[in-house]
Structure formats: structure tokens, C-alpha cells
């Protein structure tokens, strides 16, 4: 994927030039490019004067960061305790079957990345599915969830 270096600099510019900004910059990369590109980490190393090894270490440690591009939408199946008790595992299987991916994978057309996440804090909807940052679906009827997923292009 072609990454615009100006976009990278623009993101780095938003923050103080200190190591403290590292995680936030990487998060913004993830948000903008749907992954953390190598060029971006190299650029941070130059501008913030942090060894690349440390940036890469941070990039591989945090789950919110991905070194491979994720899909246009993320479908997060919550596996919090309440969701687990109410069948999150099965729900993941069913969605995975529909999208033809395993958790952590992206569909071939790049439409969805399926993830399992630790508690999104919406236990009353358990088992709950969260699409992107703000759409939540009650998963007690898996077929309804699949219907909703089809809306995302």
C-alpha cells in the first residue's frame, strides 16, 4: 500500500516531540492507514529521536495496533465474561463462517476484519457485537447480527 509521507508528518506534528507521544501517534497511524506502516515508525524514530527497536517493540505489544492493514470495517465480538456465558464463542464461529475468516483475519475483499475483544462494557446486550467505533448489536439472535453485517460495504 502506498503511504503518503506528508500524512505521516502531519500526524507526528500534532504531538509534543517526546517519547510520551509515541503511543498516540501510532494510534493515529492505525486510525488513518488502518495499520502502522514501517515508514511511519522510521519517521517517528527520526523526528522524536527514539530507537526504531523501541518503536517496533511498542508496535508489537499493544493490541490496538496492527502491523498489517485491517479491513474497512472491524467486527468485534465481545468475549467479556457476560458475553462468554451467553455464547460469544458460538457467535464468533457463526460470524467467522459467514465472513469466511478466523478471528484476527481480514476478508479477502478487505471489507471486514473479525476480532474478538475483551469486554466492550455493554454487558446488558450480551453477547454483543461492535462494528467500527460506535455500532453495537445484541447477539442473542445470531441470524439478526448477520443481517446487520450485510449493511456494511
Amino acid at each position: 500500500m502506498e503511504i503518503d509521507i506528508r500524512k505521516i508528518d502531519e500526524i507526528i506534528e500534532r504531538y509534543d516531540k517526546s517519547e510520551e507521544s509515541l503511543l498516540a501517534i501510532l494510534q493515529d497511524f492505525q486510525h488513518t492507514f488502518r495499520y502502522v506502516p514501517e515508514q511511519g515508525m522510521k519517521r517517528i524514530s527520526e523526528v522524536l529521536d527514539i530507537p526504531e527497536s523501541k518503536i517496533y517493540g511498542v508496535g508489537t505489544f499493544y493490541k490496538a495496533l496492527s502491523l498489517k492493514p485491517v479491513g474497512r470495517h472491524t467486527c468485534k465480538v465481545c468475549t467479556g465474561t457476560a458475553c462468554h456465558l451467553k455464547g460469544a464463542h458460538t457467535l464468533t464461529d457463526i460470524i467467522g463462517k459467514e465472513l469466511d475468516v478466523e478471528p484476527g483475519e481480514t476478508t479477502r475483499d478487505g471489507r471486514f476484519t473479525l476480532q474478538t475483544v475483551n469486554c466492550v462494557g455493554a454487558c446488558a446486550l450480551a453477547p454483543v457485537v461492535m462494528v467500527d467505533d460506535d455500532d453495537y448489536y445484541e447477539g442473542s439472535s445470531p441470524q439478526d447480527v448477520l443481517k446487520n453485517l450485510r449493511k456494511y460495504k
Binding site: 510520551e20 501510532l26 499493544y62 493490541k63 490496538a64
Partner: peptide
């Protein structure tokens, strides 16, 4: 903003994370 790591709820890990570290 955290990075999606449960261990960062532990006080010393949280502090390292604020510092921009693992």
C-alpha cells in the same frame, strides 16, 4: 489513550504506558 493491553491497569505498567513505553 491506552493501547489495548489489560496489564496496563496494573499501576507500574500504566505508568510505563503513559511514558510511551511497552
Amino acid at each position: 489513550r491506552g493501547g489495548g493491553a489489560f496489564v496496563c491497569g496494573e499501576s507500574s505498567a500504566l505508568m510505563r504506558s503513559i511514558e510511551g513505553k511497552v
